[in-house]
Design a protein around this nucleic acid. Sequence first.
RNA 1: GGCGCGUUCGUCUAGUGGUUAGGACACAGCCCUCUCAAGGCUGGUGCACGGGUUCGACUCCCGUACGCGCUGCCA
Length: 443
Amino acid sequence: MAAPVRVRFAPSPTGFLHIGGARTALFNWLLARHHGGTFVLRVEDTDAARNTDEAAAAIYDGLRWLGLDWDEGPQVGGDFGPYFQSQRNEIYERHLAQLEAGGHLFEDNGAIRFRSPREHVVVDDVVCGRIDFDLTNPETHPDMTLRRPDGSWIFHFVNVVDDLEMKISHVIRGEDHLSNTPKHIELYRALGAEPPRFAHIPLILNPDGSKMSKRDAGASVSSYMQEGFLPEAVRNYLCLLGWSPKDNREKIAIAEVVRLFDLEKINRKSAHFDLEKCTWLNGEYMRELPDARFQALALIALQNSGIDTVKFPDDYVRAALETCKGKVRLFSDLPAYGGFYFKDDIEYAPEGVAKHFITENKPRLAALRATFDELEMFDAVSIEAALKATAAELGVKVGALVHPTRLAVTGSNAGPSLYHLLEILGKRKVLSRIDRALATISA
RNA sequence: GGCGCGUUCGUCUAGUGGUUAGGACACAGCCCUCUCAAGGCUGGUGCACGGGUUCGACUCCCGUACGCGCUGCCA
């Protein structure tokens, strides 16, 4: 029977949760869930000067937002803790002593270094295949440092020790670590241990092919949280970067990905992040959102943009938002799309004004206003009938009335169904907004 | 520089010796339509280059170019 699958995501809390890190976490999580294994979160905070609690919190938030729950780690505990490297000093000391006893160490200006056996090391990577590294030349492969003169630890050493101690079965990480792997294997061997399986996954690049770094838009998971993305959409998109179900499916439920996931199916080629496609997927998910969740998230998006919905009746808000569902791809687009429901100081889109607030439309809009004023039932069906009748009387196409009316009432050329939006707004507001618009059109 | 990895439409990808090289995003046009979105239809763009191997290469091998990574007492 094979050893249980134990994987880990081991971020360093020096900034936010990077989108590439999130995908690494996702692939680890997927392997664990596929095999019914364990997903460990370990915080690599050996660099005291650069680590912050805020950064650690951002990592937890980002992972939770994406639904990547960890079975062991900070806030949940586990049998292999502590899960912060800063608290594992004794463990490192113990392994260092073991290396010392084996004659693998030497001291150099106060630092403790590992003497490489200087052999060929073969990395048999699940994704990249068999790679033979020649470590015999000290010029090109100098001995690595394990501990600094001040007593702090170097990443390579603590990373290996922790993976060993935590019984990690598969190390799934970015391919920027591929070249480090032979060094890690030297350490495992010196410690008398069998290395885990390695799977180096391709990096995520910017659209222009450069490495995605902290400053780049979309590099941080928190930016997706703020921009009104749905976690399931971002997660779905991330699944498709370097992995594929091989059957042309794009929108695919996470349970299905868990079922199909296989390290062997991971690509070797680094992928450019395509925000457009991620946004498209988001729209797909938004359209299918249950009403209650859509309403709740929409409300948050409106609030975040400074639109106060509290003073409006619940029925009004609900009906208003209902007309926006399925129309935008991002929650952050909602304020611009449906904000007119909640504010009266409408600003008219300049292009719309030039096109529709023209002199010949003034009497038409005025006529429509008069028709609306006389309407007994101000519901979508009546409004539509009235508008079409008015257009017929005037001998113009419905568009000649629809466009100026929409602009007058919403300030935009695009928006929800006009008839429904007018009904929801109510006759009083509609008339006053048309009056206001009429006043701006020159005769 | 050395070592390593990679290279199918602009982007994400399917494809494992014989395919009209498929799908998706984006883009363009048309249809639908009260706008936008959605939906439907149509269209264009791709196997980096050069050698092999083979009856036959996107698929296998070798080079070249380009990209990326590592080469730290960063992680």
